[in-house]
């Protein structure tokens, strides 16, 4: 009992800290990184429900991300519908898309499912390029002004700073974590896991496979579309490769798999590692750090070499990390942490 109380207290403290950050941190750059972090958490967590719990490894989640982002942006640009209304339209649409995709892809298993999910996402990406009257094609949609959010006459926020985005992002991340938690601790989660472990056995237990697969997909797709819509309004620009590309799908599943699938905190851990790491690699902070600490002289040959190449090599290092994690921590970081904890316990005994 005291353990759960302890856990709850720790959770509340972390939450309070997160709520308080914008009050004390003024740097928009820091807030921006936090927003990206929240976005990654919610993307990874959304995939977790379908991939981690129900065991359906979609490599086409860009489809839902893109539909969410595009619908919100299109409505905002063409009809001046504010995003907090547009996002609902996006959710309805994405459920329709998910059901259509489900009806095709869920007939297939294993590698065939993976390939079908890629194909559907690619079809959507190509459609977004070609349906120029609807989506503005390859030029993408740019929305520079967000309407102020009002309740009655009172302006809650006019989105001129990053603070409202910070709270929306935080809310989104908490929402996805909350939904994952409740799925995990409900009958639904039990059915999902039964399907993941052995589809045929689950079927013989009387679990309606296609119903529960579609439910998992539906939840996952709606949450992903929310993340997509948030991305769209935050960045203010969407185009086919950035929200519908295969990269996006891979990025989404990477967060979850690196962190640890089928666990509540895996995607959070994954985002905590991946977001700062790719930013640090990209922006040459590693070299900066080495120079500042005094390990490397900025004007020496090594320093210049690192400066020239490290920024170029960040995708390479990313690839190496992926390979290493898959080979040596097949259950993700979460699995690795758990293993370490178990070992320590054993040693203690």
């Amino acid at each position: 009992m005291p353990k759960t109380i302890l856990k709850a207290a720790a959770g509340l403290i972390v939450l309070a800290l997160l709520m308080a950050i914008p009050k004390y941190v003024e740097s928009p750059y820091a807030l921006h990184m936090m927003i990206l972090l929240f976005l990654s958490v919610s993307m990874g967590q959304s995939w977790n429900i379908l991939g981690g719990f129900a065991g359906q490894y979609s490599v086409g989640h860009a489809a839902y991300f893109g539909v969410g982002a595009y619908t919100t942006m299109m409505l905002m640009q063409a009809k001046q519908i504010p995003p907090w209304i547009g996002v609902w339209v996006g959710m309805v649409l994405v459920v329709a898309v998910a059901l259509a995709i489900g009806s095709i892809c869920f007939r297939l298993r294993g590698p065939y499912f993976v390939l079908a999910s890629i194909a559907v996402a690619e079809i959507l990406r190509l459609s977004a390029i070609n349906l120029t009257t609807l989506t503005n094609g390859a030029e993408g949609i740019l929305v520079t002004e967000l309407p102020a959010f009002k309740i009655g006459e009172r302006v809650v926020t006019d989105f001129s700073t990053k603070v409202p985005f910070y709270y929306i992002g935080l809310f989104l991340a908490l929402l996805t974590i909350g939904i994952t938690y409740s799925v995990q601790h409900s009958k639904l989660g039990y059915f999902f896991q039964a399907i993941r472990e052995d589809q045929d056995a689950a079927h013989s237990l009387g679990i309606s496979i296609s119903l529960y697969k579609n439910i998992a997909l539906g939840i996952s797709a709606v949450l992903t579309s929310l993340a997509g819509a948030f991305y769209g309004i935050y960045v203010g620009f969407v185009d086919p490769p950035t929200v519908l590309g295969l990269d996006v799908s891979v990025q989404i599943m990477l967060i979850c798999i690196i962190g640890g699938m089928g666990t509540l905190w895996g995607p959070v851990l994954g985002a905590l590692v991946l977001v700062p790491m790719s930013e640090a690699l990209r922006s040459n902070m590693v070299t900066d750090l080495l120079v500042r600490v005094g390990l490397v002289n900025a004007d020496s040959k090594v320093g210049l070499f690192l400066k020239e190449n490290l920024a170029h090599a960040h995708v390479l290092l990313y690839g190496i990390l992926v390979v290493l994690v898959i080979l040596f921590m097949p259950d993700g970081l979460m699995g690795f942490v758990k293993k370490l904890a178990r070992r320590r316990k054993q040693e203690a005994v």
Binding site: Y57, M253, I257, H312, A313, Y318, G319, V322, V323
Partner: peptide
């Protein structure tokens, strides 16, 4: 590489080959 994940779950195999692909294309780029 591949030999180590033959018994692993499908998504790990996929990610491993994606990772290998990234390494190849970016090494060639350097």
């Amino acid at each position: 590489f591949i030999n180590r994940v033959l018994k692993a779950v499908a998504q790990n195999q996929i990610l491993l080959t994606i990772g290998l692909g990234l390494i190849m294309s970016n090494t060639v780029m350097l």
